[in-house]
Simulated assay, not measured.
Amino acid sequence: MSTPLRTSYPVPVEDLIPAGRSLAAELGEVPSQNRLMKHLRVGKDKAKAVHAALIEERTADHAEDHPETRLHSVPDPDETTTESDTTDTPSEDAAEEFLQVTPPTAPVPARRKGWLSRFPRLTRRGGISPADEPTTGAESGNEMRPVRSWPVLLLALPAFVAVWSGWVGLGELTGFGVVHPLPGIADEFTINSAITLPIGLETYAAFALRVWLSGRVPATARRFAMISTLTSLALGALGQVAYHLLEAAGITRAPWQITTVVACLPVAVLGMGAALAHLIHTRENGSH
C-alpha cells in the first residue's frame, strides 16, 4: 500500500502524480479528488490537477486498448462530501499567498480585545486591526497621573469653620452646653456637649459618602450609604439655616420643634453609623 507524502514544503504537481498513480493502481480506478486530498495531504487545487492528469493517462491507455469506450472516474461513496465541506479546506497555495501578502498581525492586548475577540476573522483577514481602534490617552502609552487632592483641604477649612460654629451655636440655643462628663472622678474636667453635633453628623456624612462612591461594598450597604449621606447633608444644611435665622432674629432660645430635632441627632447618627458598619461586612446572601 502506498504511503502519503509527508513534507513541510509545497510539493509540485509533477511529484504528486506518481503517488496518485500508485493509489489508482491499488484501487483499480482513478481515485476521487477528495481521496487524493486526504491521501496526498494537499489542497483542492493540486488534488484536482493530479486527478486530471490521472484521468488523461488512464484515458490514453484505455483508448489504445479499447478505442470504442471512454474511461471516467467514479467517486467513492464513503468519501463523497458536499461542496461546502470541500471549500472549507484551505489549499496550500492559498495559505502561501496569504502569508506572503498579509503581514503577521500583532497580538491583541488584553485591554483592547473587547468586541473584536468575538470576530477573530476581522483581524486575521485584514478587515479591522487593533491598531485602527480609537485609543484614549491612557491606552496610547501615556501614564495616568493621579489628581492631587490637597485642594480639598483648602476647600474644607473654611467650610469646617462655618459648620463648626453654626452647630455649636445651634447646640447652645437648644440646651447643649458645658457638662462634667466624669463627676466624682475628674470634677475639674468639663466639655461643651455642643461639639458633638458637628463631629457626629458631619463626620458620618463624609464617611457615608465615601462608602457610597467607593463601589467596594455590597449593593445594600451602598444604597443605605447613599440615602443616609443625602439625609445627613440635608440635616446639616437645615441646621445651619436654622442657626443663622435664629441668630439674625436675636432669639436666644430655639423653639421646641428645633430643639427636639437637634436633640435626636446624636441618637440618629449612632444608629445610622452602626447600621452602615453592619451592612458593609454583610454579604449579599445575608451571611457574615
Rank of each mutant, 00 (worst) to 15 (best):
residue 82 T to W: 07
residue 271 G to K: 05
residue 162 A to Q: 12
residue 228 S to E: 13
residue 154 L to N: 02
residue 94 A to G: 09
residue 194 A to N: 00
residue 1 M to H: 07
residue 100 Q to T: 13
residue 109 P to D: 01
residue 266 P to Y: 11
residue 152 V to P: 03
residue 153 L to I: 00
residue 93 D to K: 09
residue 201 L to C: 10
residue 227 I to K: 05
residue 185 I to T: 02
residue 120 P to H: 09
residue 233 L to N: 01
residue 192 N to F: 01
residue 47 A to C: 07
residue 270 L to P: 01
residue 191 I to R: 14
residue 200 G to E: 05
residue 195 I to R: 04
residue 60 A to F: 07
residue 170 L to K: 03
residue 23 L to Y: 06
residue 205 A to E: 04
residue 74 V to I: 10
residue 58 R to E: 12
residue 196 T to C: 08
residue 212 W to K: 04
residue 213 L to H: 03
residue 266 P to V: 05
residue 274 A to I: 03
residue 110 A to M: 13
residue 280 I to Y: 02
residue 260 T to K: 11
residue 136 T to W: 02
residue 231 T to M: 14
residue 279 L to E: 02
residue 258 I to E: 13
residue 150 W to D: 12
residue 82 T to E: 15
residue 251 I to H: 15
residue 189 F to S: 13
residue 163 V to G: 09
residue 7 T to N: 01
residue 15 D to R: 15
residue 248 A to N: 11
residue 4 P to R: 12
residue 7 T to R: 02
residue 229 T to M: 04
residue 28 G to T: 04
residue 20 G to T: 01
residue 209 L to A: 09
residue 263 A to F: 11
residue 253 R to A: 15
residue 48 K to T: 09
residue 190 T to N: 06
residue 230 L to E: 02
residue 54 L to V: 03
residue 230 L to N: 01
residue 7 T to F: 00
residue 205 A to V: 03
residue 113 K to G: 14
residue 123 T to P: 02
residue 91 S to E: 08
residue 52 A to R: 09
residue 286 G to F: 00
residue 21 R to L: 14
residue 83 E to L: 15
residue 149 S to P: 07
residue 221 A to G: 10
residue 244 H to T: 08
residue 235 L to P: 04
residue 245 L to K: 12
residue 164 W to A: 03
residue 266 P to T: 03
residue 179 V to M: 00
residue 40 L to P: 01
residue 120 P to V: 03
residue 83 E to V: 10
residue 111 R to E: 15
residue 12 P to T: 07
residue 21 R to Y: 12
residue 229 T to D: 07
residue 278 H to W: 14
residue 112 R to Y: 06
residue 134 P to L: 15
residue 238 L to H: 04
